[in-house]
Amino acid sequence: MTERKREHFPPTLNTWIGAKLRDGTLGRGEVNRHVMEAYEGPLRIYLLGTSWRTLGEPEDIINGFLADRLDREEFFEKWRGSGKRLRHWLINALHFYLKELWRRDKRHDAASLNASADEVDDAPGVFDRELDRSWARSVVSAACRDAQATCQADGLEDHWRLFLRHHMDGVSYRQCAVEFGVDPKRCAVMVRTASTRFREAMQERLRKDGVPEVELDAELAHLQEVIS
């Protein structure tokens, strides 16, 4: 690993993923499950938006890709050295995998492979942006599930329902208060509690993707910008 890469060592490897990997086989299994759960959807949506989609069923391709790469001992070590967000590391790896699939297909000759490879490698930023767009939606959805689970575990089901009614459905506090039979001030407190759970869940998801603590807000601003 070069000194430059060391400087960009993703702090997340010192946290959740790093700790899990140090746990051995069980921890590695947990990391793999997290990657499949968090990235399968965005990668599939991304694939559907590229010319590579003609290679086969997107679901089969992505599942095959994840099974192949996550089985490689050194996969996360290489990510560690890249300094990239995990999603961007995965998209790069996916492109290599797609080229491998292409090579295996005897219908394509080397000339057309090179043309396709050049096309892909020319503008990685564009592909990152496309992935970010679908990933933003996916990670928010996953964070909602996480937050809902922690609310349920702590007996805060109504807090979470109020959060959704107010922020997702756009129902006013006054109307929420009527629906839930609590006064508006209490409504505001309950929504604030659920908001905190959601914020924590979302930030934890970003940390697992390799976003350093000090860049969390900037990353969220970036995601807001790419979906606009």
Partner: peptide, 17 residues
């Protein structure tokens, strides 16, 4: 998890900051 941009997604990203 599909479809175009929507205000709720923006709102949730803002809350997460």
């Amino acid at each position: 998890t599909s479809g175009d941009d929507d205000p709720a997604l923006h709102t949730l990203l803002e809350i997460a900051r």
